[in-house]
Every structure is written in C-alpha cells, then in structure tokens.
Design a protein around this nucleic acid. Structure first.
Length: 501
DNA sequence: GCGATCAGAT
DNA sequence: CACATCTGATCGC
C-alpha cells in the first residue's frame, strides 16, 4: 500500500523502546501523589466555599496530566496557572448561583422529541436562556486578562493538547486512537481501534495528518460518518499480518463493538506489543495464536479494573432480556419493546429479541445506515424503516426515560399500549444484581417499564484477571481510569498480584 | 453560517 | 461509580 511510503522519522517525543518504570509509567513521571499535592499554589486563593470544586479541579488536573505528553513539569506549570485563574471568579460565582437555578426546562427533550417525530410536550415557552451561568470557557480570556493579555488572548487559546504517552507505541512511528492532538510529532501512521467517539475524536473530513489503519467496518464508518478522505483510510482485515513501516501489525477481534480490534505489533527487533483498544476479554481469545506468544508490553483497557465491577457473561444477560420480553408480551401482547443503544454496540441485545420472537427491528434512517454498513446479512435483513411494522425499536440510550417513552408510544397508540425498554450498560453493577439477574428491579410508571441490564462490552474484573494471567506480559500500561493516583496504584497492585510467580 | 472545541450533564 | 455520547456556548474562519 502506498501509505507505507511515508517517511519514517521517530521524534524524541516518542518514548524509546522502554522508558517506563516497572508499573508501566514513564520514568520521568512525578510521584504518584501528584493529584493530591499539586495545588499548593492555589491555597491562598482558596476559600471554603469552593472546597468541593477544588477537589474536582485536582481530579481533572490529574487526568489532563495523564492525557498529556511526557513533558511532565512544563505541563504541570501550565495547568496550575490555568486553574488558579479559573476557580476564583467563575467557579465561585457558579456555586453561589446554583441553588437558585431555574426549573430547568430541559432543552434536550425538545430535540429528541422532534428527532423521533413526537409532538413536543406543549412547553412552548421562550426559555429564559439569557441567564446562562458563567462558563469555564472564559479560561482562555481569563488567562490572558489576568496577566498576559497580549499573547494568550489570541494564539494561545487553541493549542491542541499533547498526545499522551500511552497512545504512542515505543520504537515505532505509530499512535493508537490519537486523533485529537493534531499532527503528532514523530507519528506517521495512526491506528484507530474502533469507532467510538472517545477514540476517534478529532477525526473529520479535514484530517490530513497521515494514514489511518483500522478494520474494514471501522474504515467504512470513518468514511461514511466523518467524511474522512479515503486516501487516508487503510482498512486491514482481522487476523491478517500486515507490514507497516517495517512493523508487523495484526488486528484481532476485540469482542467490544462491531469493527473493534486488538492491535498486535511485532517490531523488527522481535519485541511484541499488544494494544487492546477497548475489549471484553473472553475465553476464545486464548486460542489466538498471537496471544500465545510472548508480549513485552500490554496496553490494557482497564475500564472495570476493580473487583466491585461484577457482571454476568453477555449471553446470560441476553437470555434474561429475551425471557423478560417473552413473559411481558405474554401478559401484554400490545407492548412496544425498546432497546437503547449508542451509535454502535449492543447489537446482540436486540438481535436476540428479534430472533427469539421473530420481530423485525425498527430504527431511524441514520442508525440503519450505520448498521447496514457492517454488512451483516443477519442484521441487515431484519431492519425495517417503518415504526408501525415492528414492535421492536432501537432508540438512543439517552432517550430511554419514563417520560420520553410515555410520549413516544402515543405515536403508535393504535398498535401499542405499553412499553418495555432495556438500557444495556456496563455499570448497572451492584452486589446483588451483578450475580442474580432476577433481582433486577425495573423502574416503571404507568404503562412504561425500563430495565437497566448489565450488558457490558468491556471486561469485568475477573475477565481482566484471567486475561492478564493467561497472557503474562512483561509490563502493563493501563489506558483507562488513569486520571487519579489512587486508581493507578490500585490497578498496579492488581497487576503485580496477577503476574507474581 | 459552519465546523471545531470545551464544559457540563446524563 | 464512569460508558459514550449529547448539548449548548463560544471561538475561529
């Protein structure tokens, strides 16, 4: 492929092959308590009033910190300046004002109702939007206004953030899921693990910083939804080895959402790195040949790397959903079944209902386009474009609220008299429902019932443990929940525990 | 007016 | 809790 012609230049900013400590963090990183003691400069301006805010500030500082490049000390300084200027005038005012906040007419409702063809619920008031609270956005102005008005007011405001170290693959000119940093120094090939916003963020039709490698499904979505120039899109088939800039790269099914991939890199010197993107570890992964070889560094999706996250296998949740649906329909045949979903992911939930009960799947045109782009005949064949012809609707997760659904069925009142909805999310966890699905209590009001079900497309704690113990990598770099030192330390102790002896 | 970006909400 | 957006405000062009 032509893109491989792009010249290779590894910038100093890219970590050398290993400059991480035994915990997988850069050796130049500050001590792990940085998010507790980073605000000494602010203490004099701090008042009791904003105390709750300052802890928020500290947290976001830490997460920005970890999002940033490896130049720790410079960044810490910048952040400190930003924050001390923001808090006093804006946060404080906001805090004071908050109690008397208006009744909140909830603007989103309006749009969603329009979007789904529902008459708006008669709140036609002009909305007192004039009173919008001061926004932190003023930060750019505040930074300039307070001290250095001259330069910051202009160019300083839109400097893209530095690419964090854990998105850079050492010893290669590669990054993974790093599109929101503009052109990354030393990066000549950009990998996209899957098509979720927090990973592709920054991609648009204006992208011109280098080739984007991803699975064919992700490639289609990038083209179709974001309008990225095809010249830059380089689909790689799952399970096939490709040589890119001298590095052997193989994408593997990640068990996350359609098109999601684990990315395996084999460097010229034989070193192997595995980047999981987002994934749900599963038994079948243990038979991937590449995962039966030594891994020097594992970039791990640690979304639920805490024992409090316990949820059942997807199959169990799917059967539960189907069973509930069956029972409900037996009692109330004229029920509309609704499944909530983001852009992509959770397809198995409604596919299973569709299959078990022989229902076509209705969803709006834009989602149909996306689902069709998967080229799954099984799914494409079941989609229908008319809400009346199906009692199984897929709607945006954010729409699944009692009030919304109550209004929504009214559109179909000749066909349906009740709604049974499912919100599949990973964090419907709890000591009880994590183990026993039958203990899940739906929320319901009138003819609308909503079940939150623990359908996760990320690994549970135990799945992560099993995966890591199977893989036994030399080092692990967590890629999620690294904003707080406490989380980082906790995760590292788990890794240590899993990998000992 | 449009696209990008950010903070805040969910 | 923290997923993956969603939304409104703001800014640059």
């Amino acid at each position: 492929m032509e893109s491989a012609e792009i010249s290779v230049s590894i910038d100093d900013d890219f970590p050398p092959v290993v400059d991480l400590d035994e915990n997988g963090f850069p050796l130049s990183a500050p001590p792990s308590s940085e998010d507790d003691d980073d605000d000494e400069a602010d203490t004099k301006t701090k008042s009791k009033l904003i105390d709750p805010c300052s802890s928020v500030g500290a947290r976001s500082f830490a997460s920005d910190f970890y999002r940033s490049g490896t130049d720790w000390s410079t960044l810490a300084k910048e952040k400190k300046e930003e924050r001390s200027l923001v808090q006093r005038d804006l946060f404080q005012v906001w805090r004071i004002k908050k109690p008397e906040a208006e009744p909140k007419p909830r603007a989103p409702q309006r749009d969603l109702f329009e979007m789904w063809g529902i008459k708006k619920p008669k709140e036609e008031e002009p909305k007192p939007r004039v009173l919008s609270p001061p926004r932190k956005r003023h930060r750019a102005a505040a930074v300039g206004g307070a001290s250095v008005d001259n330069d910051a007011s202009r160019s300083g405001s839109h400097r893209p953030r530095a690419c964090p170290f854990y998105k850079k693959i050492p010893g290669t000119p590669f990054t993974v899921d790093a599109f929101r940093y503009g052109s990354v120094d030393g990066c000549t090939s950009y990998f996209l693990s899957h098509f979720h916003y927090d990973h592709y963020g920054g991609l648009s039709k204006r992208w011109s910083h280098g080739p984007i490698y991803c699975t064919p499904i992700t490639a289609r979505l990038v083209k179709m939804c974001l309008g990225v120039n095809s010249l830059y899109i380089c689909p790689l088939e799952l399970g096939e080895e490709n040589v890119i800039e001298g590095v052997k790269v193989t994408l593997l099914e990640a068990n996350h959402c359609p098109g999601a991939a684990l990315i395996h890199f084999r460097l010229k010197d034989g070193r192997c790195y595995l980047h999981t993107g987002d994934f749900r570890a599963s038994k079948p992964m243990q038979s991937y040949p590449l995962l039966n070889q030594h891994i020097n560094m594992l970039y791990l999706d640690t979304t639920y790397c805490n024992p409090k996250y316990r949820f059942p296998p997807k199959e169990d949740v799917v059967s539960f959903v189907v069973r509930i649906t069956r029972n409900y329909l037996a009692k109330h045949p004229k029920t509309l079944i609704v499944v909530g979903a983001y852009s992509i992911g959770k397809e198995q939930v409604y596919l299973a209902i569709s299959h078990a009960l022989g229902l076509p799947i209705y969803t709006n045109a834009s989602r149909r386009r996306i689902l069709q782009s998967f080229c799954w005949p099984d799914l494409s064949g079941k989609l229908c474009s008319c809400g009346e012809s199906s009692s199984l609707h897929v709607l945006p997760l954010s729409f699944l609220r009692l009030e919304n659904l109550k209004e929504y069925v009214k559109n179909y009142k000749q066909h349906f008299t009740a709604v049974l909805a499912f919100r599949p999310t990973g964090w419907t966890y709890s000591e009880t429902t994590g183990k026993e699905l039958d203990l899940i209590k739906p929320s319901s009001k009138g003819n609308v019932t909503i079940y939150g079900v623990p359908y996760s497309e990320h690994s549970s704690f135990t799945e992560l443990r099993e995966f890591v113990k199977f893989l036994r990598p030399d080092k692990i770099v967590p890629t999620v929940n690294i904003g707080s030192a406490i989380n980082r330390d906790n995760m590292q102790s788990y890794f240590h525990e899993w990998l000992k002896a």
